[in-house]
Design a protein around this nucleic acid. Structure first.
Length: 1030
RNA sequence: GGGCGAUUAGCUCAGUCGGUUAGAGCGCUUCUCUGAUAAGGAAGAGGUCCCAGGUUCGAAUCCUGGAUCGCCCA
């Protein structure tokens, strides 16, 4: 079979483009699916990205990992459907459109028109679709993009509605208040992600305020003063209660400067009141004793009874800390999450005198219309005037601001729709138990913790571009949740083609309960719910009726970046658990880390350190980038990325592989050949590699798998090919088939990693299938582990011998008589078996074995702590001392003969065998010896005339080879060689003429002065060389 | 402020059950090889295994505390 010639100067990026063409022509991806149609499915879910921006290198990372395991599983015989998907809704999309339109607020959006605005959103989410599709194909991510699901499709929205109705039917959907971070200028709540973007260090007031106790209660008397601390004086207007920790110790104390006793946490007394000398502790009691104590509010704009029974009393809270403040926490129900929860617990009413624009309303008297934060100083002054202030300072801390307009955010109680996920917390945890996380610590760490602390899912968003919340409500407050477009049509008579706002907003129907007109609530739902519904919504189930929703679960494999623990990983789990109970929605999750630049800086446009995928792919190729991601490190800890690091992988691995492949394609196999130990060795190594790669990929560990392939290719290139060159020149059929088989198998193992180069190699060296990706994963035949070990020992012997040569400064080209190898038992057998390899590599005529080091060095002994430690424990130092006292030569001899060695410890005799002692050699002076453990190689350095001539013959070969190259000859061209010059050199050439001719492919060697194209100097002697094509 | 993870050679990373000489690749220096040639081989320099305690006969590894970096959350 004629192979395509292989270009040594290959451009991988260009090669990959050619492979892509071949894949398209042969329809390989679809064919790979067709061939497995009847096979057992192995399911992968694509976490949908949003195509409203260009894909970056981090997208290549996740897409590489999303590709490798499905490819592997396909070759293993599974049917792996890989459907693409696009996330199309949500605030990020809206914000991008706002920017484009140059508008910032909801008022401006409504002025622009929701229909027009949403049309812009719809368009923008596919703005970079072509870039995404092109990159996906270019990096070899096999994904069905033609049938990609899209969260904005009516069918998708309908499935989402169906699932929400299921949840509502279980009584888990409710409207409630929650304190949310809110930008008063933009008029919208912010998601936690947005809040995280906007923390700024600011100075806020830090005030200590005295609340007068209204009537005797517990250990307190009317007139005592509760000390509270706050950094938001504007919320004091809405003070509803105070909270104390029931377990914490509080004191009633008298200070010199104040008339009335004050109350605060004991631990904070000095911090708040100063020098203990001037403080008199009147009483100590736990916080629980203060439960129910009534006090006078700091401001009286709002009537006390507005808050309910427990308004302006001391409550018990679990969030009170004794770290700062006073240990008594001012509670304003509408403006803090802890406050709000406590208020709910005690049944306090939510009273909010602040308008949505952040100003006080008419209930706050003269402050009406003022932005709350601007009122801080006047409120403090007011308190001071009325003798209610203890101290006012300022306080620097980080506080969230709107990331778009820098307005300080307010925490603000607002009604929104929730899913009561906290009620299924135990089910979520149980489902999580069945998931295999990679890395493992996510399960009970980041993700498990998050589930443990589950709070209800805030589902609604007061926005425009999203799946509309399918909740209709009549004026009586009766709520109807709609579960399908049909149901809506039946009730309203309206068939929605587009279920988005504003069209859905216009649909009304008569309420079942009271007959009054029901209209949709204005909110859309959190985009994360969209993606969490993807397992069934991508197929429009249950409406399509092809699969029961239950059968669509679980996925065998999903893979996203680590930040998805709170995102898609959670939404998938939550939606699944809400619908189908405590069963894992996915079996294996691979979490990927962040990509930083090579200085550990985050890539960002403002830093200008963003590396575009194309920058790397155009230079090194997609295989190179994939290989880097797979093998440079385990993926979850993140990458310090630089193009040069990708280039290193190309040089070290892809080029090495390519050159090995080139050698294979260069020679035509002849008829004959015999299998050698070297062949058996590389086949055994191949089998071992196949086993480990299979095992590691089964365990979702691409890193160790890939590195194992790299090690094999290194063995193949630097040992098998190097040692087999003469056989290749002869067209040895067995050697060439062994190399071909090795490379074809490597191509298969590599196919999931670097699909392009793998396919190119397969196609040229085998081609039995239209693509390597249509082959079945290779089996691992039986290994010959003894041979693998023997080769390792032989290679170690070579290494030692070469080191000895280097130390003696004798070139490898100069043959030597003998290498003396110290080795016994298995080691000696191994070296003898592979003696020819060792002799050739070391260029020695013979090997002599000595089993004792007596003539080359002396032994030293060391205890093997690993075996002796557990046995002797504390006595180990004595054991070490006893071993040191043994006669090493005797012990070595005894152990060699299999006799145990006795030592005396703590009055008892113990015996040690060869496992318990490590015998090493110490070199004697005057020998050229290299040693490693008990193994050593010494060289006989004497060079006689014969060796000298042989060495010279090799030098002549070297010189002639250089002449051949200078003459521009191809490596297989035959020549007529003419030599002239120094007699000793000519003598050496004549003596070794057949060797010389064979090496330089000379059909004839002449000795005459005729040709002297080139003059070489060998050890100071002159040689004139002429080469002519034969 | 809390949770999770990381910290090993100049750089990028391995390091198994705790075992006494902590490894690889790159880079650097020197040498070598020449039918893969922008490759291959050998040698060398290069380490406070982040720090401090603790457990242990023995700690890069286990425990506690701290530092720094990153992510997530407040």
């Amino acid at each position: 079979m004629a192979k395509r010639p292989v270009d040594a100067q290959v451009s991988f990026p260009r090669l990959e483009e050619q492979v892509l063409v071949r894949w398209r022509e042969r329809d390989v991806f679809r064919e790979s699916l067709r061939r497995r149609e009847a096979a057992q499915p192995w399911s992968f879910w694509e976490g949908p990205p949003t195509a409203n921006g260009r894909p970056g290198v981090h997208h290549v990372l996740s897409r590489a990992f999303k590709d490798i395991f499905p490819r592997f599983r396909t070759m293993r015989g599974y049917y792996v459907e890989r459907r693409g998907g696009w996330d199309t809704h949500g605030l990020p999309v809206e914000i991008a459109v706002e920017k484009k339109l140059g508008i910032k607020t909801k008022a401006e959006i409504e002025e622009y028109g929701i229909e027009a605005f949403n049309a812009q959103c719809r368009e923008s989410v596919f703005e970079f679709l072509e870039d995404w599709n092109a990159l996906t194909e270019r990096i070899g991510f096999w994904l069905d993009l033609e049938n990609a699901y899209r969260t904005l499709d009516a069918s998708y929205v309908e499935s989402v509605w169906w699932s929400l109705k299921q949840i509502a039917d279980k009584g888990l959907l409710y409207e409630g208040h929650r304190v949310v971070p809110y930008c008063p200028r933009c008029g919208t709540a912010l998601s936690s992600h947005e809040v995280a973007l906007g923390y700024e260090d600011v100075e806020d007031p830090s005030v200590y305020v005295r609340f007068r106790v209204a009537q005797d209660g517990g250990p307190l008397q009317a007139g005592d003063e509760l000390l509270i601390w706050t950094t938001t004086p504007w919320t004091l207007v809405s003070n509803a209660a105070v909270a104390v920790d029931p377990e914490l110790v509080y004191v009633r104390a008298k200070t010199g400067t104040l008339e009335a006793p004050v109350v605060l946490a004991e631990a904070l007394t000095e911090k708040v009141l100063g020098d203990p000398e001037h403080v008199q502790i009147l009483d100590r009691f736990p916080g629980a004793a203060l439960d129910g104590v009534r006090y006078e509010p700091p401001f009286s704009y709002l009537a006390a009874d507005e808050y309910g029974e427990r308004g302006h009393t001391v409550l018990l809270g679990d969030f009170v800390s004794a770290d700062d403040g006073t240990g008594i926490v001012h509670t304003a129900i509408a403006f803090g999450e802890d406050d709000f929860r406590l208020g709910q617990q005690y049944g306090l009413n939510v009273v909010n005198p602040v308008r949505v624009d952040g100003t006080y309303d008419e209930r706050v008297g003269s402050y009406e219309g003022r932005f709350v934060k601007d009122a801080d100083q006047d409120l403090i002054e007011d308190l001071r005037r009325r003798g209610r202030l203890l101290r006012a300072e300022s306080y620097e801390h980080s506080y969230p601001h709107c990331w778009r307009c820098s307005t300080p955010l307010l925490y603000y109680a607002k009604p929104s729709w929730y899913i009561a996920t906290s009620r299924i917390r135990d089910e979520l945890l149980a489902a999580n138990e069945q998931v295999s996380w990679h890395p493992e610590h996510i399960k009970h760490g980041r993700f498990g913790d998050w589930l443990e602390n589950n709070v209800d899912w805030a589902l609604s968003r007061e926005r425009y571009w999203g799946t509309p919340l399918p909740v209709w409500r009549c004026e009586q407050g009766h709520v109807t949740v709609i579960g399908s477009l049909d149901e809506l049509e039946q009730r309203s008579g309206v068939r929605l083609r587009d279920p988005h706002r504003p069209f859905v907003d216009d649909v009304t129907f008569a309420c079942d309960a009271c007959g009054q007109s029901a209209t949709r609530v204005p909110e859309v739902i959190d985009v994360w719910f969209d993606s969490g519904a993807m397992p069934f919504a991508q197929r429009h189930e249950p409406f399509a009726g092809e699969h029961a929703v239950e059968q669509l679960y679980p996925a065998d494999f999903i893979c996203e970046a680590l930040d998805q623990t709170r995102g898609w990983f959670y939404s998938l789990l939550a939606v699944s658990t809400l619908l189908r109970g405590p069963q894992a929605p996915y079996r294996h999750v691979v979490c990927l880390g962040l990509i930083l630049d090579d200085k550990a800086q985050k890539m960002s446009k403002s830093r200008g350190n963003v590396i575009a995928p194309a920058d790397v792919i155009d230079r090194f190729g997609a295989d190179a980038l994939r290989w880097y991601f797979f093998t440079s490190k385990q993926p979850w800890d993140g990458y310090l990325f630089s193009p040069d690091a990708v280039g290193e992988g190309v040089r070290l691995f892809l080029r090495q592989l390519w050159n090995t492949y080139r050698v294979c394609a260069m020679y035509e196999p002849g008829e004959s050949g015999e299998q050698t130990d070297l062949d058996r060795w590389i086949r055994s190594r191949l089998s071992a590699t196949t086993t480990i790669v299979t095992e590691r990929l089964d365990a979702y560990d691409a890193t160790v798998a890939g590195r194992a392939i790299a090690e094999f290719v290194d063995d193949l290139s630097n040992w098998y090919v190097r040692r087999s060159r003469p056989r290749f020149w002869d067209g040895d059929a067995v050697a060439l088939e062994t190399l071909r088989h090795s490379l074809v198998t490597v191509a298969q193992l590599l196919a999931p990693f670097t699909p392009f180069i793998a396919d190119e190699i397969y196609d040229n060296l085998d081609g039995g299938q239209p693509s390597v990706h249509l082959t079945d994963w290779p089996e691992a035949p039986a290994r010959d582990e003894a041979l693998e070990q023997a080769m390792a020992i032989a290679r170690e012997t070579v290494r030692l011998g070469l080191a000895a040569r280097a130390a003696a400064k004798i070139k490898v080209r100069q043959p030597l008589h003998e290498a003396v190898v110290v080795a016994a038992g298995r080691e000696r057998d191994a070296i003898e078996r592979l003696g020819e390899v060792v002799r050739e590599e070391l260029n020695v005529k013979g090997l002599r074995f000595v089993s004792q080091a007596d003539e080359l060095g002396s032994y030293t002994l060391k205890p093997n702590y690993r075996t002796l430690g557990p046995r002797f424990g504390k006595a180990m130092p004595q054991v070490a001392a006893a071993v040191a006292g043994l006669d090493a030569d005797h012990v070595a001899e005894a152990l060699r003969d299999g006799r145990p060695v006795g030592i005396f410890i703590d009055g008892h005799d113990h015996t040690l065998d060869s496992d318990d002692l490590q015998v090493a050699m110490a070199p004697l002076a005057g020998y050229q010896l290299e040693r490693e453990g008990s193994h050593a190689v010494a060289l006989e350095l004497a060079v006689d005339d014969d060796l000298r001539r042989e060495g010279l013959a090799r030098e002549i070969v070297h010189a002639v080879q250089l002449a051949r190259r200078d003459a521009g000859l191809d490596i297989s061209d035959r020549i007529v060689l003419t030599l002239d010059g120094d007699d000793l050199l000519l003598d050496a050439a004549r003596l070794h003429e057949s060797y010389l001719s064979g090496e330089v492919l000379a059909v004839a060697v002449r000795y005459s002065a005729n040709g002297s194209d080139r003059v070489a100097s060998i050890e100071g002697r002159e040689l004139r060389i002429s080469v002519a094509p034969a």
